[in-house]
Amino acid sequence: MTANLSTPLGICKITGDEDGISEIKILDKDEELSNSVPKVLIPAANQMTAYFKGELKEFNIPLNPKGTSFQKQVWLALNQIPYGETRSYLQISKEIGNVKAIRAVAAANGKNPLWIVTPCHRVIGSDGSLTGYAGGLWRKKYLLDLENPPIQQELF
């Protein structure tokens, strides 16, 4: 089952079934918005809407992503990154117990099927740079700014 909803980043496509949400991604092309959302996808759709309004900091929906055991291990580590914080690929590779797996961690991060919910956008370069994001760096920056808005430096 799928549902398409509008977000500030484009059309969000949510896919899942009774076993959980298997995919959430922002599409680069226009697709028709869903007139109705299948019952099993309503919690995910509601939580995505609340997230983009700044009303939700932690998702609470059943997840069922498809991937290798290594990818799932990386995605589990991504889910531990708190809202408004970032980690480097090196930090994630250390967390999963394989400091030499930085490139494999980056590759698994890029294959994350649950954008935003499994916060791959919170992973940055060791030097603090915004590196790699399947949805484009402008979306990554938007999400990081949404979670941790820049402080206004001047009044006028």
Results as ranks from 00 to 15, higher is better:
Val117Met: 10
Lys29Phe: 13
Asp127Asn: 15
Trp115Ile: 01
Gly135His: 07
Met48Leu: 14
Gly16Arg: 02
Ile11His: 03
Lys111Pro: 05
Asp17Arg: 06
Ile21Asp: 01
Arg103Tyr: 13
Val99Glu: 14
Ile116Ala: 07
Asp30Pro: 11
Leu41Asp: 00
Leu76Gln: 11
Arg103Glu: 15
Gly128Trp: 03
Lys25Ile: 05
Ser126Asn: 12
Met1Asn: 09
Val74Ile: 06
Arg87Lys: 15
Ser93Phe: 05
Leu114Phe: 04
Leu27His: 07
Ala106Thr: 01
Leu137Gln: 12
Gly97His: 08
Lys53Met: 04
Ala107Gln: 14
Val99Leu: 15
Glu85Leu: 12
Gly84Cys: 11
Glu32Arg: 11
Leu144Cys: 04
Leu27Pro: 09
Tyr142Arg: 01
Ala45Trp: 02
Glu18Gln: 07
Asp28Arg: 13
Thr49Ser: 08
Gln73Thr: 14
Gly16Ala: 00
Val74Asn: 03
Ser34Cys: 03
Ile61Tyr: 03
Ile151Met: 09
Leu63Ala: 06
Lys140Asn: 03
Thr131Glu: 14
Ile26Tyr: 01
Arg87Asn: 09
Asn60Ala: 09
Ser126Thr: 11
Glu23Leu: 05
Ile24Arg: 06
Tyr51Phe: 14
Leu137Pro: 10
Gln47Asp: 02
Ile14Lys: 01
Lys72Ala: 00
Glu55Asp: 14
Asn148Met: 10
Gly10Pro: 12
Glu31Lys: 15
Glu18Met: 12
Cys12Ile: 00
Arg139Leu: 00
Asp28Ala: 09
Ile92Glu: 04
Asp19His: 13
Leu5Gln: 04
Thr68Phe: 05
Phe59Pro: 15
Pro8Phe: 02
Lys141Met: 04
Lys111Phe: 10
Trp115Asp: 12
Thr15Asp: 12
Lys140Thr: 09
Pro62His: 08
Ile81Met: 10
Leu33Cys: 05
Gln153Cys: 15
Ser22Arg: 13
Gln153Glu: 14
